[in-house]
Simulated assay, not measured.
Amino acid sequence: MREAYQSDLRHLVDDLVNMASMVESALSDATDALLDGDLALAERVVAADPHIDERQLDLDAKSVELLARQSPVATDLRLLVASLRMSSSLERMGDLCAHVALVARRSHPELAVPEQHREQIRRMSDLALAALRDAAQVISDRDLALAAQVEKNDDELDELQQEIAREIGKGEGYTNTQIVDLTLLIRFYERLGDHAVSLVRRVGFLVTGDAVDTLGQATDVTEF
């Protein structure tokens, strides 16, 4: 029985990592659809989002069943509690990827991102992808040094959001639609980074037992 229980816990971690991989694919495809004006790819990202939602429901059901059946304590209890929060963050990240794809779809056949901002948006996407990959590794390996790096790297995403916001805030050379779309897009990518930070902080709670800093930056992300 004990071996089966430990196997269930390991599978739970594997499920979280797999869910992160699904979100990673969605993010990569959504950005490609956005910058290349690929309508078919955007549609695939939107259509795939319910599968990420289903994965969250399945993972949460497993966690709740283990909580009820095994009455875990200490690290095992923290793992199950953390998994419920991490699956929620990953589901929201999937939603954000779908939002990016919806901007691409709405703008078609035009490109939503003006030429002068394409490199910045690509960089925001690359940073969010790196944060997600690193967060998945942190979940798998419980690597707190890498977790700290994810938090540190999130600063560049925030700076890029602020940089683009300042530029479009001047309102010169943009249509109203471009201003709205860019404002949304930089918010989506910035929130993706915040969710990655939330993931690694949950792992910190799992490993150390220290309470998560709910007053700190981007710990419990409830919008978008």
Rank of each mutant, 00 (worst) to 15 (best):
L57N: 15
D134L: 08
A165V: 09
L144G: 08
T183R: 11
S83A: 15
Q70S: 08
V200D: 07
S198M: 01
R122Q: 15
S198R: 04
A211T: 13
S125M: 05
L57A: 14
E43P: 04
N176P: 03
L160P: 01
R55P: 05
S198E: 05
L96A: 05
L129N: 06
D76E: 15
V200W: 02
A20R: 12
R69A: 15
A145I: 12
C97Q: 04
E223M: 07
G193E: 11
H195A: 10
L35R: 00
S7F: 02
S21Q: 08
R191G: 11
A196T: 13
V207W: 12
E159Q: 15
C97I: 01
E156G: 02
E65H: 11
P114E: 13
H99I: 00
E91F: 00
S88W: 07
D38Y: 05
R10M: 05
L27C: 07
T177H: 04
L39T: 06
D181G: 06
E65C: 02
H51Y: 07
L127G: 06
G193V: 03
M22H: 04
T177C: 00
L59M: 09
D36F: 03
C97E: 01
A196D: 06
L160E: 11
H99F: 10
D14R: 15
L84R: 00
L84I: 13
H195P: 12
D194F: 07
L66F: 08
D181K: 02
R106F: 07
L215M: 10
L182H: 09
A48H: 15
V221W: 07
G173E: 10
L111P: 01
H117T: 07
A211F: 01
S87H: 04
S87L: 04
S7H: 07
K170D: 09
S88Y: 00
Q137M: 14
A68M: 09
L59P: 03
R69K: 12
S140I: 02
S21N: 02
D36E: 14
R85A: 09
V180Y: 09
V103H: 11
R201I: 03
G216L: 10
D181E: 15
E172A: 11
V207M: 08
G209F: 05
S107P: 08
M93F: 10
S198F: 00
H99P: 03
L144M: 12
S87R: 01
D58Y: 10
A20M: 01
P109F: 01
K62R: 15
A98H: 09
L39R: 15
V207K: 13
G94E: 03
V138Q: 06
P72H: 07
Q178M: 11
V150G: 14
Y189K: 04
I168Y: 06
L80A: 12
T219H: 02
A61Y: 04
S89I: 00
L132I: 12
A68I: 01
L80W: 15
R166F: 10
